[in-house]
């Protein structure tokens, strides 16, 4: 089938924003480096470059459903083909961005090595400091790469799912979910939890999150596995929603 055209179309859609993103990142880091070299007296640390990418991809996910979906329906694609090509595009984008971030990380590390009082860390190193100590450099970097890759995919998929949910809802539903969810999580749930359970539910959630991400255990592989499971669930939900999505009149 003509899957290639649908793939190419959606990928092109992403290319521009990815390029702009990295231009901004490069400029930002350049400015930061200049600032550190010239003005900072103590040590400095640039870290969490991959967490910026995660936020970026989440937003990209939020913004990329409607336009390509209706465009591809107009041009004779089934929802199945649109979804399949979309998955391939998500994999491609995530792979490319994880690779670019890897290069930036390596460059950053090389640069920070020259000045003893600065360092350049990835999110992975910050969250799992223990697991970085006893592995070979190759495995260390491979772990970062796979971790980033899976994390990026998960957040891209979450953003996409949220937009899909909103697309499927009618006006009243959009308002209800748009206002209801934040109110519930920021107001009703904390008060309820505090009043009746002494914040027990929140703690349970925090523990659950900690254990699936392997944070306390210092086990990044638990997180990788969790990302895979979450991605699969989110993508399956996305498909269920897209299957019956229509063009709104």
């Amino acid at each position: 089938m003509n899957l290639k055209a649908a793939y190419k179309y959606q990928l092109t859609d992403h290319t521009k924003s990815v390029i702009i993103y990295y231009c901004v990142i490069v400029v930002l880091f350049a400015l930061l480096s200049i600032a550190t070299v010239n003005y900072s007296t103590g040590g400095s640390m640039i870290s969490g470059m991959d967490s910026i990418t995660v936020v970026f991809l989440f937003i990209v996910g939020l913004c990329t459903f409607r336009e390509p979906f209706v465009m591809l329906l107009q041009n004779g694609f089934s929802r199945k083909s649109i979804f399949k090509s979309r998955l391939l595009v998500a994999c491609t984008v995530v792979l490319i961005m994880a690779a670019i971030d890897k290069v930036i990380l390596l460059l950053g590390k090389a640069l920070s090595m020259s000045s003893s009082n600065s360092s350049f860390l990835s999110l992975y190193e910050q969250v799992y400091p223990a697991s970085t100590a006893h592995v070979s450099p190759f495995l260390f970097h491979l772990n970062i790469f796979v971790f980033d890759l899976l994390m990026y995919f998960t957040f891209l998929a979450i953003g996409y799912l949220i937009t899909l949910i909103f697309y499927r809802l009618n006006k009243a539903g959009k308002i209800a979910v748009g206002a209801g969810v934040p109110i519930f999580f920021c107001l009703i749930f904390p008060i309820f939890d505090y009043a009746f359970f002494g914040s027990g539910i929140s703690r349970a959630f925090a523990n659950f999150f900690d254990s699936i991400m392997g944070i306390s255990a210092g086990n990044p592989y638990a997180a990788m596995l969790s990302f895979i499971v979450i991605s699969v669930i989110i993508s399956a939900l996305s498909w269920l929603l897209m299957r019956r999505a229509v063009i709104k009149l």
Binding site: M1, G76, F77, S78, K80, S81, I247, L249
Partner: peptide
């Protein structure tokens, strides 16, 4: 949901897609 059939059709819709 049949790509082969859908590729045989073109519809100019009132709404711009």
């Amino acid at each position: 949901e049949n790509d082969q059939a859908l590729q045989q059709l073109y519809l100019t819709s009132e709404k711009t897609l």
